[in-house]
Write a protein that binds this DNA or RNA. Structure first.
Length: 596
RNA sequence: GGUCCGGUAGCUCAGCUGGAUAGAGCAGCAGCCUUCUAAGCUGCGGGUCAUGGGUUCGAAUCCCGUCCGGAUCACCA
């Protein structure tokens, strides 16, 4: 809020003139006045008691008088304990409202051609299994962060890195080859990513059986693992793949194409997308070259077993393998190559990786390794480390079949939205197609809001029952508030009422005042969300605003208000709230319906 | 064991760059539709902010110790 910095500067001037002391503008504490007290903004005066050598009441009054004399927006003030509560004039707030309604992108700072470029990596799926709940949090966070960055003056490139190679991919390939009997998505009617996932599970099952057999023959666990025939075949397959063996590459291409088609559907259903997709299969060789280059330069070393490693003990970490003794690449190799390629492709000012906090160590190492290789951006990379998603019963475990599949979840939510809407008769008169679009909007609104409203850094609990709740602190509650506002405007047209955005000089009720005040703080929320990488701030703001509006809506007539000026104010206020809710939800990747 | 993260109402979460009487939602109970959408609104009950110290005018918030939970410390990704 602009007014806050004005007040801060004035308070610091007041301290200088009244008490001959110096305080920085920044150090002045201005906060929103508590709801149960009179006032709009509050200055905390405790810090100045030492220099004023007076009591809190008197110091507050003196500063209050100064502000009133020097700032026309200050109407009156009161002092409670050490808090100076300022009442700002209704003319001031109406001026703010008029500015906001005139700017549909209120709070957004659009980037220019020479704005800094931020690349945000998110999603990063493996091609051996379909997307699940954990990926959903990742995708929603990544997408929302991209939008938040884009309205905070960044040019944004959304990027995906597909982990399409490696031993895990070979496992599903091997299983398909051994037991697949030529199955395809078409022949089975199973979505491609799910079909491949089934073979991955099949491999794991057979592998476990083999281990059990070996152990039954008297081998211990480690011995059994090293003697496993299946694992040996998988490793051989990886080697063949890296040597471009035609048969292996053929299977790989075919199965990956199934998976990509499946992923595309899921991404589309979630409403997320990417500007540039990288494939590990195309980047890992760059990483390998860079590691070998580093080896030559003496940044890394080769151990007697043949593996190439980096020693990070001087940074408080351990040594880390960068190339296996058989020469094949590991996860880290690939990330080094991808980073290099990206910085060759784009003039990146800020690189953000949206990856779970289980990989904190990996990114610590990546940052150091890139730095050692001489890349200035190594140290500056941002690992946006988000928390895991758990179920009320605890962690998701594939072995116990508790993994929540992304496609299933979205489909279920849409079903629930459809049933609920039909029961309430909300969309009577809409065509089936129109109604379906809104069911989807509501379902995704519920899911996205549910996942984005919590602090991304924290582990969260996904309660299926709560996630499809449409009441209370939910996405649909906010969507509903928006829909109500649209309904008011439709009614206004029906009644032939005229409305102009510009509001004249009218007194404001407490609720109206609160709403205008909340609206003016939207830009601050948007900017803080970018600085702290937290869509949750936007989500919570949207909820607070919707809640406040519903209270206003409940006890203030809008169209039925007979006084023209008041009615006009309420319409403008409603319009601005609607626009702001829409913008806030857009930042979360959530659409708002005209009706629901 | 080392490192990192967390512990706020029965449950899920806000609040954490120190500020006034710690807030929402869900769940429970009681109300409000002949007025702009009741997917809404109002009220009630519910708290040793894990715990013990410290810093200060003031601590859920900052610092230290303890307890509890999680992540990680792979030639997996």
């Amino acid at each position: 809020m602009e007014i806050e910095s004005t007040i801060k500067a004035l308070v610091s001037r007041a301290i200088g003139e009244l008490y001959q002391a110096t305080v920085s503008d920044e150090s002045v504490q201005v906060q929103i006045t508590r709801k149960d007290l009179e006032g709009d903004l509050t200055v905390v005066v405790f810090p100045y008691l030492k220099v004023s050598k007076k009591g809190p009441e008197q110091t507050g009054s003196e500063i209050g008088e100064f502000l009133k004399a020097h700032l026309s927006a200050v109407d009156s003030f009161n002092v409670v304990k050490g808090f100076l509560n300022l009442n700002l004039s209704h003319q001031f707030w109406i001026g703010e409202l008029n500015k906001m309604v005139a700017n549909v992108d209120h709070g957004f700072v659009k980037p220019a051609d020479d704005s800094p470029l931020m690349m945000i990596e998110y999603s990063s799926p493996n091609t051996n299994k379909p997307l699940h709940l954990g990926h959903i949090r990742n995708n929603l966070l990544g997408f929302s962060l991209s939008r938040i960055a884009a309205v905070n003056g960044f040019r944004v490139v959304k990027t995906n890195i597909v982990n399409d190679r490696g031993i895990h991919i070979c496992k599903s390939m091997l299983a398909w080859k051994k037991w697949g009997e030529g199955q395809t998505p078409d022949s089975t009617g199973i979505k491609g990513d799910h079909l491949v996932g089934d073979f991955y599970v099949k491999f794991d099952k057979e592998y476990k059986q083999e281990l059990a057999q070996l152990q039954a023959q008297g081998l211990n666990k480690d011995e059994a693992e090293s003697q496993s025939q299946l694992m040996k075949e998988a490793r051989e397959m990886l080697l063949l793949w890296e040597q471009n063996d035609p048969e292996v590459v053929g299977i790989w291409k075919m199965m990956n194409s199934w998976v990509y088609k499946g992923f595309d559907e899921t991404y589309k259903a979630l409403g997320v997308d990417f500007d540039k997709t990288y494939y590990e299969s195309q980047t890992y060789t760059y990483g390998r070259d860079m590691v070998l280059d580093g080896l030559e330069k003496g940044v890394f070393y080769r151990k007697d077993d043949g593996s190439v490693r980096v020693d990070l003990s001087s940074d408080g970490l351990d040594e880390k393998v960068l190339l296996r003794s058989d020469g094949t690449s590991v996860y880290m190799t690939q990330d080094i190559g991808t980073a290099k390629l990206r910085f060759d492709d784009y003039a990146i000012d800020k690189m953000v990786y949206v990856v779970g906090n289980e990989q904190n160590y990996h990114f610590q190492v990546l940052s150091l390794v890139l730095d050692k290789l001489g890349f200035s951006w190594g140290k500056d990379l941002v690992h946006f480390s988000y928390g895991m998603v758990e179920l009320p019963e605890g962690k998701m475990k594939s072995r116990e079949g508790t993994v929540v599949d992304a496609d299933d979840l979205v489909a279920e939510m849409i079903n629930t939205a459809r049933e609920m809407s039909k029961e309430l008769g909300k969309l009577d008169g809409y065509s089936e197609q129109e109604a379906e679009a809104i069911y989807r909007m509501i379902a995704l609104g519920a899911l996205k809001y549910y996942m984005l409203k919590v602090d991304p850094r924290k582990t969260m609990t996904f309660n299926p029952r709560e996630s499809i709740d449409f009441n209370g602190n939910t996405g649909p509650f906010i969507q509903y508030t928006y829909a109500r506002i649209q309904s008011v405007f439709r009614k206004a047209v029906e009644k032939g009422m005229t409305h102009h955005d510009e509001v004249g000089d009218v007194a404001l009720t407490d609720k109206e005042n609160n709403l205008v005040r909340m609206l003016t703080s939207f830009p601050t929320v948007v900017s803080e969300a970018a600085q702290t990488y937290s869509p949750a701030l936007v989500a919570n703001y949207a909820y607070d605003l919707a809640k406040e509006f519903n209270q206003f809506y409940h006890d203030s007539p809008i169209l039925f208000e007979e006084n023209d000026d008041k009615r006009n104010l309420r319409l403008t206020l409603s319009k601005t709230v609607g626009q702001t809710l829409k913008n806030a939800m857009w930042l979360l990747g959530i659409e708002v319906p005209p009706r629901m």
